[in-house]
Design a protein around this nucleic acid. Sequence first.
DNA 1: GATCTTCTTGAGTGATCACTCAAGAACTAT
DNA 2: ATAGTTCTTGAGTGATCACTCAAGAAGATC
Lengths: 191, 191
Amino acid sequence: MPRKPDFDRDDVIDRARALFWRRGWAGTSLKDLEETLKIKPGSFYAAFGSKDALFALALDRYADDSLGNLRRLAAEHGPIGALQALPQQIVENDCTPAKACMLSKTLLELQGRDHRLATKANDHLLAMEKEIAQLFDQAQKAGDVGASHDPQHLARRYQSDLMGLRISAERPGIDAAPIAKEIADGLEKLR
Amino acid sequence: MPRKPDFDRDDVIDRARALFWRRGWAGTSLKDLEETLKIKPGSFYAAFGSKDALFALALDRYADDSLGNLRRLAAEHGPIGALQALPQQIVENDCTPAKACMLSKTLLELQGRDHRLATKANDHLLAMEKEIAQLFDQAQKAGDVGASHDPQHLARRYQSDLMGLRISAERPGIDAAPIAKEIADGLEKLR
DNA sequence: GATCTTCTTGAGTGATCACTCAAGAACTAT
DNA sequence: ATAGTTCTTGAGTGATCACTCAAGAAGATC
């Protein structure tokens, strides 16, 4: 009996993520979303409930995709290989709406106003750190990382460096490739 | 003959900077500014012209203070000593409105919308990079940094690491002190 | 104290914000 | 076809946005 929606929900979330990622939370108005997603306000609110709710879905998908990407790299290149490939991949890929990490951007934009989306971004960052720590742990067990190092500590530092790299890559006129290479090369010295 | 303004312009800019720094550009409304600065809209626009103009003044002051701080550290600890002291100083100082760099925050918030304040933030970051590069250059001439290194390259990497550190320090539940120490210790290995 | 200039006040501007809802169109099941 | 349900439409909600301006208060000069 029910009529199906005219739009592909997954596709809409993808396009919403691209907009939010590039322009940020406050920088993306409902008018922007309506135009890009080709959805009228009534349908929008029936489908998603609020701007914040759609942003949360976009953020979740961003985090899921990031985790999936890291796992794929690990399956292909091994733990250390994945961590070395990631910086270069970020700098070189110019299909993304922005170079900077959407989680970092959201955290910085909304943390100062105690917005719950900032907490959500931080939670996703923590999950990512955990995944990175597991890779360092595997690398350590494989002998690619010296026993004196703490995987979680390495992960936190690595994630911090990556956030810096991605801001640098976002800046106009800055070539972040050398920084990416240095981060990757730095991992060689952990043996 | 003219009547003097009731408020101290410098003090107002300082308080505006604190607000903008913490809450960001879009996150700070004129109502917020009026309440914090105790200035009514008429006086505000007579004195500063626009929200953007005051933000620009706040950003300039932030950049000036950051440069001044780095130079002061250099005078006290020498080039490498200053670069080693800076990360710890950032992490430990809890008087600032935010741990993250105001220039980074502004860049990330407004770059995606091609706002001129994003360009201004990037210009200030470039000036800062130049100052850092000079310190690396001095350190190199003093023998504290090996001849094979490029000061500007070192500066760019250092600045990137610092931006990452400052985002990490902004995150709730994250102790950024170990990262700060690692950045400082890493400079020892440049000889 | 008179006068001139500048500053402060605060109600008010149009625009845009996120969001709502009544009405009709469109699809499904019978 | 008919009925039943859901979806889409788009004008419209009050709130807030950055900003303006006329009027009066306050300080400076004589």
